[in-house]
Design a protein around this nucleic acid. Structure first.
Lengths: 222, 222
DNA sequence: TAAATTCCTGACTCATAAGTCATTAATTTT
DNA sequence: AAAATTAATGACTTATGAGTCAGGAATTTA
């Protein structure tokens, strides 16, 4: 069927030795702002300063490249958070603030901040990857925060609340800020100042937690 | 160049008259759980019980179909919310609860709940659509909530806070719950009960708002 | 400096899915 | 019931981009 091989002889210049780290960085940039499907490997290669073929010397497929990007991304940040919790002495409100602001410095402000959006967008299409991400990043993040809240309740510093729910409520505005920056930010005329936003969030949530808060009996809604 | 037209004569059966609403519903389903790029028009057509060609009788292109799906989706829900705010008498905490729970009933629990994820995922790739969605849904939603918070502050029911930030902090856990359900929900062993989650959120946030809360002077962080 | 080795290149193949249109079924008009 | 009109069909065209690989550049070895 195929009548191949009078392959045109080429004259080209070899560019440089590829660095896997650079390939991953280029891929992260593009995946983050175009999504998985819309990212062309040609572009990733160009951005990394190599040819498409080279990419395939390092990664079996686009999907493997994607996995590698995700894998290398947030796990180290989570680990640093875990170490921070272990070594902390002092009030748990302080620890909570330290975690939140540190997270913003490391993740929010960096290119890594784009990963959550990417994962939310692709989770349904890559169930296996979603599970990986859930186990290695999300659930560890929750566990970390959950430990802080539990300890706070044990010590009487925080009111008694359902920890699983509370961790999500604490995290939501952080993740939300991240998603925002990587999606609608450009449409938004009155940009949010992350620092102020996060301080307000912490202030509100700590007030809510510190005060003796029992979930009120069913609200009066039609 | 092209040597066309010995087009094979076909024998086929006409299926039914297309209903635009059904086409939109089918498209919504698929867009929501596969994303824009990964959704094939062949599949949309099949789900709606028509052929691909029929789709093009009603929508100029895949992108136009997408826009139509979004347009028909959340704008009416926002409008109902606006009417609710106009007609309300009573405490603003009550109104806030009414809005949040009503929103969950209408949007969160329905197929519409998938749209926010979809929009976050595609915003960067469809700037024009993102702007449309921002103007027609997001900013109106914020304005709606903002009015409630402002009025609460005016009446002295709520503490004085930066409204723009506070609206986002109030909304974040709601949107977050939605995104979650349409992405990682399947990975999560301990499913979140939306009702409980939302009640805790409202309780925490209202505590935070009601108490005399001034953003504390810069925290003591390294 | 020639041969062997390493590793990169980009034209090419091929699968996929958006978008087209000649054709045909159903319906309405005359 | 024939003609005219309307509304669907799906095989076909075509653009795109993932993945391949024969061949060439740089480097190392002999």
């Amino acid at each position: 069927m195929t009548t191949p091989q009078p392959r045109q002889e080429g004259r080209w210049t070899r560019r440089k030795n590829a660095r896997p780290a650079e390939l991953l960085a280029a891929a992260l940039d593009l995946f983050v702002d175009r999504g998985f499907a819309a990212t062309r490997l040609d572009d990733v290669a160009r951005r990394a300063g190599v040819s498409k073929g080279t990419l395939y010397l390092y990664f079996e497929s686009k999907e493997e490249l994607f996995k590698a990007v995700i894998r290398g991304g947030l796990v180290p940040a989570i680990e640093r958070g875990e170490r921070m919790v272990e070594g902390h002495t002092g009030s748990l409100a302080e620890l909570l603030e330290k975690i939140i602001l540190g997270w913003w410095q490391e993740v929010g402000n960096s290119q890594l901040g784009g990963i959550p959006k990417l994962m939310f967008a692709e989770a349904k299409n890559f169930p296996e990857l979603a599970r990986f991400y859930y186990q290695e990043v999300i659930s560890r993040g929750y566990r970390l925060l959950g430990r802080v809240l539990d300890e706070g309740q044990r010590r009487g510093e925080f009111a008694l609340v359902e920890t699983d729910h509370a961790t999500r409520i604490v995290l939501a505005p952080l993740v939300f800020l991240l998603l925002w920056r990587h999606s609608f930010d450009v449409c938004d005329s009155r940009r949010i100042d992350p620092e102020t936003y996060l301080r307000l969030h912490m202030s509100l949530i700590l007030d809510g937690l510190r005060v003796r808060t029992m979930v009120p009996a069913a609200a009066h809604v039609g």
